[in-house]
Structure formats: C-alpha cells, structure tokens
C-alpha cells in the first residue's frame, strides 16, 4: 500500500501529463467534426471510398435510364395537356347565332384516313401517293398530317388516288409559327436531308432558343392551328442579316410514314371565295 502511494506520488506528474493529454485528445476528437469523422471512420476509409466510387459510377448509369423515363413521361404529359386544351377550346360555347347557319368549331375539320403507298425522301422534289382519292372526298389543296405532325398538301387527285406534296419539296412552303411567342414564318425544304428543313422570315429581334416547338400557324386555310411541325435544331444570324437562318428538325419522319390523315376544312370554299372577292375589289 505504501509502495503504491509512493508510486503514485512519484509518477503524479506523469499521470497529470497523461490526464491533460487525454483531455486534449478528447477535445481533438470530439470538438471537431472533421477530426471526429476521420477518427471514427479511418478504419474503413478504404471500404467507404471504394463504396462511394462504385456508387457514383452506378448512379451515373442509372441516371440515363431515369432521364429517358422522365422525358417520356414528360412528353406523354405534354400531349395530354395539348389534348385537354383542345377539348377545353371546343367546349367553350360560342354565342349561338340563330340566323345564320354555322359549322361549330369542332366540326370545321374532318379527317380522312389514308395510307401512304408511295413515298420518296431522297429526291430534290419528293411526292407522296395516297390510296384514297376524290371518291373518298379528297380535294386539291387539302392538308395532310400524320400523328406526328404536318406532312404536306394535296396536289393532284384522281378518283382513287391522290398525290401529296410533302414538306420535302421546295415547291411548297408551310406557314408555321413558334408555339412560344407566335412569331410566324414559312418552312422550306433545302433538298438535302429528309429530317431537316429551313425556317425563313423570322426577324432578328425575335428571341429564339434551341428546341423551340414550331406549330402550324392557322393563317392558311389548309391546316388548322397548332399541328406540330418540328423543333428548332440550330439557328444562325450574321451581323448583316435581317432574318435568322433556322434549321428545323421535322416532327414527321418521312422514312417511316405509313398512315396519314387528310384534313377536310368544311369552310374552305367559303373562305377562299371571300378572300378572292376582297382581292378583286
């Protein structure tokens, strides 16, 4: 016992030293999150770093699938919105006009389903032949669309067949506009690539961004407003230019086109006559 006390007294300084160092070390470990975390995790830092690395790699691959899913879902939802908007527009009651006969808006356009039996995409002037003609109600200058978007305009009609000038033909220009800000221009094919066409008449003050959606303007009687045409793929403007050179990715893939709908605008003749009359006066 005496020895023990002597021992303790003799080494009291050492014990004090150890005591103070332990306090300091506790401070180091407890007071600072960084040191704390290092201290606590240093034993498995290799494992954890490897885990982190592998997780980051796996996550990267998963991201792609997630992205695809999201964009698909996004398009589906967007389509739904468009459908609902269209429904909403048709449901809004126009003030009834009892005196004059009037075709209600939702009846203004009728669709005639047709099958593409011939379609070229690699020529400078491409044409599409449909398996329906005058007997089915198709007339010259009717618009043709597919589920994806605008295809072209009916050029010639025989009793059983009809020929369509698609967008892929420099002979026609489709009047279209930006969905975002309603600026309209005309779409013209440059004869090179069946996936792309050029949009002209967009002045330089118009704000553009890549991916802007183009829809039909409804300014011509051929197509109702709002049918997708394409999206902006690329645009350029030189210092001296007044108009943009816009490259548009077409909504319709003409290589895989098989079923189309011909638009029958019931008021077409009336509108045309009125316009003609006005011009003559």
């Amino acid at each position: 016992m005496k020895n023990l006390i002597n021992f303790l007294i003799q080494y009291s300084v050492v014990f004090l030293f150890l005591f103070l160092e332990i306090i300091s070390f506790t401070l180091i470990v407890k007071n600072q999150e960084y040191q704390k975390s290092v201290f606590l995790s240093s034993s498995n830092s290799v494992v954890s770093s490897m885990y982190e690395w592998s997780n980051s790699v796996v996550e990267f691959f998963k991201l792609r699938a997630a992205n695809d899913n999201l964009s698909e879902e996004n398009t589906a939802l967007k389509n739904q919105i468009i459908k609902l908007e269209n429904k909403l527009v048709t449901l809004e009651k126009v003030t009834p006009d009892s005196v004059h006969f009037r075709i209600p808006p939702e009846m203004e356009y009728q669709f005639i389903a047709a099958k593409v039996i011939k379609c070229t995409t690699n020529k400078l002037q491409n044409y599409i032949t449909l398996d329906k003609g005058a007997l089915d109600g198709i007339k010259i200058d009717m618009g043709v669309v597919s589920d994806e978007g605008v295809v072209g305009i009916v050029k010639n009609v025989s009793p059983k067949f009809s020929v369509v000038i698609p967008i892929l033909n420099p002979k026609i220009e489709i009047s279209c506009k930006f969905k975002r800000n309603n600026y309209s221009g005309s779409l013209l094919w440059n004869g090179v690539d069946y996936r792309y066409a050029n949009l002209t008449d967009i002045a330089r003050h118009v704000e553009l961004s890549l991916g802007d959606t183009l829809i039909t303007s409804g300014l011509t009687s051929t197509f109702p407003e709002g049918i997708p045409v394409g999206s902006v793929e690329d645009f350029k403007i030189k210092e001296s230019d007044a108009y943009y050179r816009i490259k548009v990715k077409l909504a319709v893939n003409f290589r895989t086109l098989s079923y189309v709908k011909v638009i029958n605008y019931l008021n077409f003749q009336e509108q045309k006559d009125l316009e003609k009359k006005s011009e003559e006066q």
């Binding site: 160092e21 300091s24 180091i28």
Partner: peptide, 15 residues
C-alpha cells in the same frame, strides 16, 4: 478554433 491540438502540443512541450 482548434483547442485540442494546441493543448496537446503545449502539454507535451511542458512535459
């Protein structure tokens, strides 16, 4: 903001 290392080092020096 780092009391631990300082205290540890000074105590070691004093010892």
């Amino acid at each position: 903001n780092i009391p631990g290392p300082h205290a540890f080092a000074t105590v070691l020096v004093a010892f």
